[in-house]
């Protein structure tokens, strides 16, 4: 709040009201409903529900399939974050360094940001198409038969590749703007002290980029967890079957296809807790960083 402000009661309430109503109806009510129904067992034919306590959660943790999906989500998140962050960092460092063409490279490397994940997934289907996709044919040169949608690990690899491709641009934009905000004087001082480019990068540039990198880490984890839904739906063509899927995809499959409302809600609540933990962790680390700089 500003020190100098208007003293009125009516107007600000009217200003806040639309946002609060929308949030109340479409955010808090559903969220509370999810928590509530995670403790109930809903009759599949809609004849009421019974309170079952923590049974839905216990059922999830005991389910081998849920654990398998959780493990896949973890690995998937790790790989996508690692590959898209490191590729974007290399590209950003190079784009910041070259004297000519920085703007052109920036355009060429960032426009994929605007490609919707399900469309990216569809392109992935074409690129890895069984039998005649370009990547499938390329891998066949090495004697590997890539079978998208049939082989569990092949499908998983395609998912990681498409998600990484789709998410490099965001990381690139943030890294590049982080690099460009490092003062010229710091770069010159580092240049005088140390002629080795690699050393200069690890001793000066990387620590200065660390806040950006940490922030991006959280963004990437959130992306891999939630925003990949459309991409996965495209790659498995809406038929999960034996294919890998993420936790969010399972919420959808169990809730809308399986009609298991209690189990789906319990999964939602687990995801909510996960996001809250991530956010608290983010604020903690950010706070600590502010203290010592």
């Amino acid at each position: 709040m500003k020190r100098a402000s208007f003293n009125q009661l009516g107007l600000p309430v009217w200003l806040l009201l639309p946002q609060l109503v929308i949030i109340g109806v479409f955010f808090y009510w559903p969220a509370a409903h999810a928590v509530r129904s995670s403790f109930y067992l809903e009759d599949p034919f809609g004849f009421g529900s019974t309170f079952v306590g923590w049974d839905n959660y216990a059922g999830l943790l005991a389910s081998a399939q849920y654990v398998k999906v959780a493990v896949f989500t973890l690995g998937f998140t790790f790989l996508v974050t690692f590959f898209s962050l490191s590729i974007a960092l290399v590209l950003a460092v190079k784009a910041d360094k070259v004297i000519r063409g920085t703007r052109t490279y920036r355009t060429l490397l960032m426009w994929v940001y605007a490609v919707a994940p399900p469309v990216a997934g569809f392109l992935g289907v074409m690129v890895f198409y069984q039998g005649n996709g370009p990547m499938t044919e390329f891998l066949a040169l090495f004697g590997y038969e890539f079978r998208l949608g049939v082989n569990y690990y092949d499908t998983a690899a395609a998912m990681v590749a498409v998600a990484t491709w789709n998410h490099i641009p965001v990381n690139f934009i943030f890294f590049l703007s982080g690099l460009q905000s490092i003062p010229q004087s710091v770069k010159e001082a580092a240049m005088i002290d140390n002629r080795s480019g690699t050393r200069r990068f690890w001793d000066i540039t990387f620590p200065l980029l660390a806040p950006t990198a940490f922030f991006l880490l959280i963004i990437n984890i959130t992306y891999a967890l939630f925003d990949t839904f459309g991409m996965i739906d495209a790659l498995v063509k809406g038929e999960p079957g034996n294919n890998p899927m993420t936790l969010v995809y399972k919420v959808y499959v169990d809730g809308f296809r399986g009609n298991d409302l209690g189990g789906s809600s319990a999964q939602s609540v687990i995801l909510m807790v996960l996001v809250l933990v991530l956010t608290v962790f983010q604020f903690r680390v950010m706070d600590r960083r502010i203290h010592y700089t």
């Binding site: 955010f27 009510w29 959130t222 939630f226 959808y252 939602s268 996001v275």
Partner: peptide, 12 residues
């Protein structure tokens, strides 16, 4: 609301 994307509370 920044904390919880729509995907998490999609069914309710």
């Amino acid at each position: 609301t920044l904390l919880l994307p729509l995907e998490v509370r999609i069914l309710p």
